[in-house]
Design a protein around this nucleic acid. Structure first.
Length: 251
DNA sequence: TAGGCCATCTGGTCCT
DNA sequence: AGGACCAGATGGCCTA
């Protein structure tokens, strides 16, 4: 397809570039070009046919409304499909927003496949961290509760302890998770149990997924981790300098 | 320049 | 019948 107008919207998955697909801009950009091209092609084809048929005006009159109807249908279908894909991309952007990688104008957007793979591993990492934390809290406050009972202190339930005690170190580690947009995950941490400090494991891929990409650090080529800012967080520390360098990529 | 990623078009299939 | 979903094809943009 000739999609010259695609230059204006070829990276339109980000909300600010998404072309309003509603009726107001129905013929904007590519749609307009396609519409013009098809009209031109049709008129040319119509000319050719009339020339070829040698004045078959009747058949032309009969076929044109059908053709226009078909065109309208095709345009409608195209528009719906475009809108569907835009919605999908918006959802993908929403997912990117809550993913633990640096967001910014100088940072290249995660690709779709990278977003999905990172999301998967992020969820797996959070799940295992949550399990680990539950275990730890159970161990610590199981003993603490027994002690408090003997000391006539108010009983602290493990759930309450989960909410209060480990918040400080976790808040720090959360910083490393959310990168430059710590607020992105704040509602998560507030509504769910706190998590243990993240490991770097969520950045790498587990065996079944690994085959999808050339290397486990394929993600690294898609975004920069804390651009321009040395990050002392636990997530960055274990990574060798060379790895961090390969992680960074500017536009 | 090759390869990756993407948007769009298009035809097919399934569902309501 | 109309709409949603899907996958293949195509062409543009960007980066190494």
């Amino acid at each position: 397809m000739d999609s010259d107008a695609g230059s204006t919207c070829s990276r339109s998955s980000s909300p600010d570039l998404v072309v309003d697909d509603s009726a107001g801009s129905f013929f904007s950009n590519k749609m307009f070009q396609t519409y013009c091209r098809e009209n031109r092609a049709d008129s040319e084809a119509g000319q050719g046919r009339t020339e070829h048929c040698g004045g078959g005006g009747k058949s032309k009159n009969r076929s044109d409304p059908d053709k226009e109807e078909g065109q309208d249908l095709r345009l409608k279908v195209n528009s719906r499909e475009r809108k569907r894909m835009h919605d999908l991309n918006q959802a993908m952007d929403g997912l990117r927003e809550v993913m633990p990688y640096a967001h910014g104008p100088s940072v290249r957007k995660l690709s779709k496949i990278s977003t999905l793979l990172l999301a998967r591993n992020y969820i797996l990492m959070l799940s295992s961290s949550l399990d680990e934390m539950k275990k730890l809290v159970g161990d610590v406050y199981g003993g603490a509760a027994a002690q408090s009972r003997t000391a006539a202190h108010p009983t602290i339930t493990p759930a309450a302890a989960t909410v209060h005690l480990p918040l400080h170190p976790l808040a720090q580690s959360l910083h490393s998770l959310v990168g430059s947009t710590p607020s992105a995950l704040q509602h998560h941490s507030a509504s769910t149990a706190p998590h243990s400090p993240p490991s770097t494991s969520y950045l790498s891929f587990h065996a079944p997924v690994q085959g999808l990409l050339k290397d486990p650090l394929h993600l690294a080529g898609s975004y920069r981790h804390f651009p321009g800012m040395p990050c002392p967080c636990s997530l960055c520390q274990p990574l060798p300098t060379s790895t961090l360098h390969s992680l960074s990529m500017t536009k």
